Computed example of a mutant assay.
Amino acid sequence: MPRPFVKRQLAQRVRKTAPVTLDQNGIATGYGVDRLAAVLQMYGIDAALVGIDGEMRSFGVQPDREAWAIAIEAPNTKRRVPLSMLALHDATVATSGDYRRWVNLHGRRLSHTMDPAKGAPLQSSPASVTVVAPTCVEADAWATALMVVGAQVGDDFAQRNGLQALFVLRDETGSLQTHGLGIFFATQPWQ
Score class of each variant (00 low, 15 high):
Val39Lys: 08
Gln41Val: 05
Met42Asp: 10
Met42Lys: 14
Tyr43Gln: 11
Tyr43Ala: 09
Leu49Tyr: 03
Val50Ala: 02
Val50Phe: 01
Gly51Asp: 04
Ile52Asp: 01
Asp53Arg: 07
Gly54Trp: 01
Gly54Pro: 08
Glu55Phe: 04
Met56Asp: 02
Phe59His: 00
Gly60Lys: 01
Gly60Ser: 11
Val61Ile: 12
Val61Met: 08
Pro63Asn: 10
Ala67Ile: 02
Ala69Asn: 13
Ala69Val: 15
Ile70Asp: 04
Ile70Glu: 06
Ala71Leu: 07
Glu73His: 06
Glu73Ala: 09
Glu73Met: 09
Thr77Asn: 14
Lys78His: 13
Lys78Val: 13
Lys78Leu: 12
Lys78Asp: 15
Arg80Ser: 13
Arg80Asp: 13
Val81Ile: 14
Pro82Glu: 10
Ser84Met: 13
Met85His: 10
Met85Lys: 08
Leu86Met: 11
Leu86Lys: 00
Ala87Ser: 14
Leu88Phe: 06
Leu88Met: 11
His89Asn: 15
His89Cys: 13
Asp90Val: 03
Asp90Trp: 09
Asp90Ala: 07
Thr92Gln: 02
Val93Cys: 15
Val93Arg: 00
Ala94Cys: 14
Thr95Lys: 01
Ser96Gln: 04
Ser96Asn: 09
Asp98Gly: 12
Tyr99Met: 06
Arg101Ile: 11
Arg101Thr: 11
Arg101Ala: 10
Trp102Cys: 05
Val103Leu: 14
Val103Gly: 10
Asn104Pro: 03
Gly107His: 12
Gly107Pro: 14
Arg108Lys: 15
Arg108Met: 14
Arg109Cys: 12
Leu110Glu: 09
His112Met: 09
His112Val: 09
Thr113Lys: 03
Met114Trp: 10
Met114Gly: 08
Met114Cys: 13
Met114Glu: 07
Pro116Ala: 11
Pro116Glu: 11
Gly119Pro: 09
Gly119Thr: 07
Gly119Phe: 07
Ala120Gln: 15
Ala120Asn: 12
Ala120Gly: 12
Pro121Thr: 05
Pro121His: 05
Pro121Val: 07
Pro121Arg: 01
Leu122Asn: 03
Leu122Gly: 04
Gln123Val: 09
Ser125Cys: 14
Ser125Gln: 02
Ser128Thr: 06
Val129Thr: 03
Val129Asp: 01
Thr130Ala: 11
Thr130His: 04
Val131Phe: 02
Val131Gly: 01
Val132Tyr: 00
Val132Glu: 01
Ala133Thr: 02
Ala133Arg: 00
Ala133Val: 02
Pro134Ile: 03
Thr135Ser: 15
Cys136Asn: 07
Cys136His: 01
Val137Pro: 00
Val137Lys: 00
Glu138Gly: 11
Glu138Asp: 15
Ala139Lys: 00
Ala139Leu: 02
Ala139Pro: 07
Asp140Arg: 00
Asp140Glu: 11
Asp140His: 05
Trp142Met: 08
